[in-house]
Design a protein around this nucleic acid. Structure first.
Lengths: 241, 241
DNA sequence: GACAATCTAAAACAGATGTTTTATATCTAT
DNA sequence: ATAGATATAAAACATCTGTTTTAGATTGTC
């Protein structure tokens, strides 16, 4: 009758089963695409009403699930941030890219604790409720982390427009591989499964590509007084070497 | 009673109204997210059954709509391909990027004939039925066009792995701006509306960034015998200049 | 003007969804 | 052991979806 307290004496077991089942389902499909009945069935045949009993809403279940995922994601992010602390900027960039792409491409996605990459990635293209939460606690911090590294590589202040644009570009390359994964089913025969070695290769490429790009942009930015928005004074085709 | 022929004497007017209304709705939301009733309402209060009458299915309506959009998209693509023919590779790259980002960012999206950018873009993150058609007729040709240009810039054969990876990277940067557009509502105050001048700036930046990236990767590729997949022999941090 | 094909309109149908209700079982605390 | 809160189960509800049916209006052609 009174509101159900999660910290009750017992009965937290089916609650957790619902969360676990929902997490796996929401990792693959969007909020609207997963039905309560499906979640319950996956949670060992729980009753359809149990979701409303424990979480009030379907949205309540999703919310709680997201907060858990985001907390783990934050921990993983900070763990890795500490790990690369003090290394030279170029190596930081590689390590970040390698780490990020690894998460995007769902390395270790078999461990349920590591599903945040999948969920964040899916939310990006198919936002549910609480998308604002995902952006703020999941994407922005990550994006800022890359921006700091790019600023170091470019040897420019973090607020600089060129740094911002280069961060955009580097991130875009990384995210491309999640789009490519989806498209790969429709394209042709390319490897749909990524091994750690494959990911290494991708990360190395993206790093090299981005390093050259960042340096070129930084150079242009310095030359032209760093006033305009993005590469002012350039009429389209760059000066040949 | 007999199957409805589109080329009937008259009555193609409400048919077209349905197509137009559906096009605008599907440009913003996915196939599943738009209901038949909504389409009919937008089409001047048409009856709910009219979609099934004219197009057999909801999927039939969508299919016909897509084919029309893809045809216009192909025409626009070939128009632009002819336009940049013969220009130097670097300028080709800029012109392609400028053109592509313009479409992605929905320049001229007020003209209904120009909605393909919006629809293709949405399909990319939220595929409906006939997604295979979209990929094959909408995305692949476009992607190949960029690959040809990248190969010219890199001075490498089109099949080369480095060219493939660089194409990926350049395309990724372009697509980033469509993601950014979605996120911009949740980020902060950044300009959510893109002017032609803004797009110019973005395209110039992406071009500069990619040019440096492509050249660096091509150089590495030549040095290391062009055997491995993506930048072999590099242990993560690149050689300092 | 009358017939037949075509188009429009309203209603009804079958299925799925999230949620609420009702009833029954289970457990803890007194 | 019994009372009261808590947990489970089944069913019913309201709403939305795409689709079909049925009936009525419109139209072109002979």
């Amino acid at each position: 009758m009174t509101n159900p307290d999660p910290a009750s004496q017992h009965g937290i077991e089916p609650r957790q089963r619902l969360l676990d089942a929902a997490t796996e389902l929401f990792a693959e499909r969007a909020f609207k695409e997963v039905s309560i009945r499906e979640i319950c069935e996956k949670a060992g045949g729980a009753n359809v009403a149990s979701v409303n009993y424990y979480f009030r809403d379907k949205a309540g279940l999703y919310r709680e699930l997201l907060e858990s995922i985001l907390a783990r994601w934050e921990a993983e992010r900070e763990r890795h941030a500490k790990l690369i602390e003090g290394k030279p900027p170029e190596e930081k960039l590689y390590l970040y890219v390698r780490w990020f792409i690894g998460n995007i491409l769902e390395e270790r996605a078999d461990e349920r604790d590591m599903l945040f990459g999948r969920i964040l990635n899916r939310e990006m293209s198919d936002p549910g409720p609480d998308f604002r939460l995902i952006v703020q606690k999941g994407m922005v911090p990550n994006w800022k982390r890359l921006m700091t590294i790019v600023a170091e590589v470019a040897d420019l202040p973090e607020g600089n427009q060129a740094v911002l644009a280069c961060t955009h570009g580097t991130m875009g390359q990384c995210l491309m591989y999640s789009s490519a994964r989806k498209l790969s089913k429709y394209f042709g025969p390319p490897e749909t499964h990524f091994t750690p070695e494959t990911i290494d290769g991708i990360a190395r490429h993206v790093t090299q590509f981005s390093l050259a790009g960042i340096r070129a942009i930084a150079q242009l930015n310095r030359e032209s007084g760093a006033a305009g928005k993005a590469g002012p004074g350039c009429s389209g085709t760059p000066p040949e070497e």
